[in-house]
Amino acid sequence: MKIVVCVKQVPATTAEKRYTADLRLDRAAAESVINPLDEYAIEQALRLQEAGAVETVAYLSMGPESAAEALRRALAMGGEEAYQVTDDALAGADQWATARVLAAALDKLAPDVALMGMSSDDARGSLVPGAVAAIRGLPLLSYGAELQLTGSTARIRRLTASGFDILEAPLPVVASVTDQVGEPRYASLKGIMAARRKTLETWSLAHLGLSSEDLHGAALTRVVEARPPEAKAPTERVENLGPAEAATRIADWLTARKLI
């Protein structure tokens, strides 16, 4: 049984980020980490491997050269091999192009489960798992709090507005998991050292039998403007008031804004 976890390198949540002059995310500028939500997917895959349900855990990422860092960090957590799709034509790739490329790479790797995190931290896009499933013609098990594998099926437990559902589909599947999976492990020092010796293959679009034309030039959407958010009115602070007075002050504030 093989799982391929799709991993994206994104700017760290707390890092300073910006767009370049041609309105693309300046991926070099900020400290890059594994998309936090993908860490849960990695953790889920590794737990299944530890439980003996999965033999091979591999990683797949699409990004610039430096995205190899995210893959090395993933390999330091566990897993056997990693694959990176890098191509100049992919600069500024949007969700559809990403899904198209990942789908082609996943078809090549043919795992039992293509596993992803729920969404990515930078653009908060979340359409990649569904699109990959549609392109590959495979079932989708999304928003899983937990993934389970039996011989020929996959099951996820998904939290609903109240309670949870269990969804099932025959393998192979595309799946996405949420942070309910459990705390992702830290990479141990031995893991980091072992990661340096693990396979990391780089593929270009040509390797996948794709060309820039196939991807409509990598982006079906474009950013026409990037600006800082509107300056917010400064915070009104209320300090050193007794509870009853503070409550009155808040109620007045709400009334003034027609919220009560």
């Binding site: 990479a187 020092l189 980091i192």
Partner: peptide
Amino acid sequence: EHDELRAIVRE
């Protein structure tokens, strides 16, 4: 490698 180690331990 040193920088990578630093990042991991710092985290």
